[in-house]
Design a protein around this nucleic acid. Structure first.
Length: 425
RNA sequence: GGAGAGAUGGCAGAGCGGUUGAAUGCACCGGUCUUGAAAACCGGCAUAGGUUUAUCCCUAUCCAGGGUUCGAAUCCCUGUCUCUCCGCCA
């Protein structure tokens, strides 16, 4: 959520910023509502003030044993007026809030203007693209010939966009997860966290998935529903909801491994082959809770931490700066890491790292106490995948494939594979 | 699943329906004292919103949402969460 103060003071400037992020703001409607809000709020507060005064007067009179009936007569109308005014105020404020909730974050100045992913900027290319003396196989073929990936079984048990892994490939996915966690914990200083995979509505509001993106989520129950997490960002970032963090605990750096669940409602026909786009996938997520002036730097570092995993696995990748049109709703600036997939002869997203500044924190009421002022200040939140494990598995399989269909185990993973160096059928 | 207890400031913990935004203690900040520190003493110390150059002032907030009342932290209802006992269970 944007700073309402900002919205009030300079709506036209916000409108411009919103257009860059592909949203619009009806300034006139906003101004009308704002004026109305002020008027009704003043009226309501005046009435409340009157009520409080007379209630006190009555209390005093009663204590002295005076006749309070005339005072009571005086306030008979007040209650109804107040109730009407309060109802009106609630109404206006709800409307204002829904406008605010629908507005995306203001993009950072260094985010290039652009329509879609075509206009993203390539900042870096790392690693040599492997060459094969044969037509490179994709992970589907590799996995089936190794009897380690079974899409039919996934479909039978659950439905489309589900998969089962077994044997060494299942272990390879676990090895990747462990390797990522260990690296981030031991080398990058993150704190391991275990969190619920089902969350309530409030948590999803906090991180901005609700109210706008409900169709991307799996919902369970109706009266007070749970949602399957689409990313660990939701439960992990909500750790700091309604908290005031002590200065000496800042910054907070969390890493969590969770399954992620996405309905992929808008993705019919996209990536239907293989396990690129699943309803359920594993991800290791990095979350940093930092002071306001530290978030830009934190994004750079966090992205670096994700890159180091790819480098350790010797997987070729590109670092992309997303353009305005491709940057997510809550983000001010996003880097994507795209890994090379020989089976597709293409780079595909494997990590997305974003700086949300105070946008999530405002909703979350996530603050830290600044010792200089003694006052609580909103934190900044930064997060990114470090990495999407399912896609990393694919990348390893395809990049480490050998002519006979076997897969070499990346050096850093061998200890996690119980010494196994080659996965064969 | 059954029975009971509870939810109050950064933390702990008081609070007869009536100047209670809330006692007290701890923590924190400033000061006195001290060679320095500790102790002691004095003072300050919630959050959000409205108005304001600013001070002031006003409003809201004692888990959440309703209700009773001139007036609710306090009474009633509903929900959420926590704790204790019993049962069940990985």
């Amino acid at each position: 959520m944007l700073d309402p103060q900002l919205l009030r003071n300079d709506p036209n400037e916000i409108k411009k910023a919103m257009q860059r992020h592909g949203a619009d703001l009806d300034v006139d409607a906003l101004n009308i509502l704002e004026t109305k809000r002020k008027e009704i709020q003043v009226k309501t507060q005046t009435l409340q003030s009157e009520r409080n005064k007379s209630a006190k007067a009555i209390g005093l009179a009663k204590a002295k044993g005076e006749d309070i009936q005339p005072l009571l007569d005086n306030v008979s109308q007040l209650g109804d007026d107040l109730k009407t005014a309060e109802a009106e105020l609630n109404d206006v404020q709800a409307k204002l809030l829904s406008i605010q909730a629908s507005l995306p974050n203001i993009l950072s100045d260094d985010v290039p203007t652009g329509k879609d992913e075509e206009q993203n900027i390539e900042l870096k290319k790392w690693g040599a693209i492997p060459e094969f003396s044969y037509q490179a196989k994709d992970h589907v073929d590799l996995g089936q010939s190794l009897s380690g990936i079974d899409f039919e079984a996934g479909a039978k048990i659950a439905g489309s966009r589900f998969v089962t892994l077994s044997g060494p490939l299942a272990r390879l996915q676990r090895a990747l997860t462990q390797f990522m966690l260990d690296t981030h914990i031991d080398k990058h200083g993150y704190r391991e966290t275990y969190v619920p995979y089902l969350v309530n509505e409030e948590s999803l509001r906090g991180t901005g998935q609700l109210p706008k993106f409900e169709e991307d989520l799996f919902k369970i129950g109706n009266d007070s529903p749970y949602y399957l997490i689409p990313t660990a960002e939701v439960p992990v970032t909500n750790l700091v909801r309604d908290e005031i963090i002590s200065d000496k605990d800042m910054p907070l750096k969390f890493v969590a491994h969770t399954p992620c669940f996405r309905s992929e409602a808008g993705a019919y026909g996209r990536d239907v082959r293989g396990m690129i786009r699943q309803h359920q996938f594993e991800k290791v997520e990095l979350v940093q809770i930092v002071k306001a002036n530290e978030s830009a730097q934190a994004l750079e570092e966090l992205t670096q931490h994700a890159e180091e995993i790819l480098q350790a696995l010797k997987l070729p990748y590109k670092l992309m700066l997303l353009c305005s049109g491709d940057t997510g709703f809550s983000s001010t600036k996003t880097y994507d890491l795209e890994v090379w997939l020989p089976g597709q002869s293409a780079y595909r997203e494997i990590s997305s790292c974003s700086n949300f500044v105070d946008f999530q924190a405002r909703r979350l009421k996530a603050r830290w106490r600044n010792p200089e002022t003694g006052k609580p200040e909103l934190v900044h939140t930064v997060n990114g995948s470090g990495l999407a494990v399912g896609r990393t598995l694919i990348a390893v399989m395809e990049n480490y494939q050998q002519a006979d269909g076997s897969i070499k185990v990346p050096e850093v993973l061998v200890p996690y594979m119980g010494g196994l160096e080659i996965i064969t059928a």
